[in-house]
Design a protein around this nucleic acid. Structure first.
Lengths: 133, 133
DNA sequence: CATAAGGGTTCCAGTTACAGGAAGGTCAAG
DNA sequence: CTTGACCTTCCTGTAACTGGAACCCTTATG
């Protein structure tokens, strides 16, 4: 299978697939013409990677997950551990964004948004916050 | 004021301040020894930038906000517009992360996390999702 | 006066996960 | 034979810094 077909079937851009090969996530064969020749297993891996990436796992997490996926003697605890750590990161990110969201929503609501220069948003940004020294 | 002092007062790393000068957000003077010499106004700008960045505004947004901040003839509508667009981006990001969160939480909860190889997380990742072709 | 500590300076590389684009080889069809 | 749609590699750029090397300036101290 050529890269274009694999891309369609895996739902990933060809650029991304080449990149995944570059960083050693997959090792497709090569035809005599130099074209990559993807196996069914390569396709499975790429789908796996696409799914993991869409859940926000980092490439390095994906590398580890893929290794566990192919290790039939793995312990599910290892997979769970990676996933839990990832979940925690997502949670902190959500919390952080929600805090920003609250502040921004207040500011937007407080700003007239007309042609006058008075602006609570700029006033807030200009308010010094850091100067413990 | 030297960069170290400004860094303390603004709550930003010196590296970041140099970077902000590089990309033209601030233009501190230079002393005869080549050291940057920051004015009170520079410090205000840096605090402004720190605050805007902590609310998740991009550097380019910050550049625009800073220009509006210094333009006493600005229209608050311009500021509000930037902020609303930023708020929308934050909202989509939150929504996206919450979707990941839900899936990940289900998977974590379904995984035994012991020394056996059976793992619903890997099973889910391995489940082909993209193949509309 | 030499030196050592603690500033400051520039510049270059690395980070994340690709995307865009140039230059050029390959293949099937008309 | 040429055209168009593939494929290849390689280089650059993205965002917003961070780390580190190599080197200069200043001040205090023995």
């Amino acid at each position: 299978m050529n890269i274009g077909d694999v891309a369609k079937h895996a739902g990933l851009p060809a650029k991304t697939i080449r990149y995944y090969e570059d960083i050693g996530l997959i090792q497709p064969d090569r035809g005599t013409n130099g074209y990559r020749d993807f196996s069914e297993n390569d396709l499975h891996k790429l789908r796996f990677l696409g799914q993991a990436r869409s859940l926000g796992f980092s490439i390095e997490d994906c590398r580890d997950l893929l290794a566990l996926y192919e290790d039939k003697d793995r312990a599910s605890a290892d997979v769970k551990h990676i996933t839990e750590e990832h979940l925690e990161k997502i949670d902190s990110k959500i919390t952080e964004l929600q805090a920003m969201r609250r502040t921004l929503a207040h500011l937007v609501q407080a700003c007239a948004g007309d042609d006058r220069p008075d602006c609570p948003i700029l006033a807030d940004l200009a308010t010094a916050r850091a100067d413990p020294a």
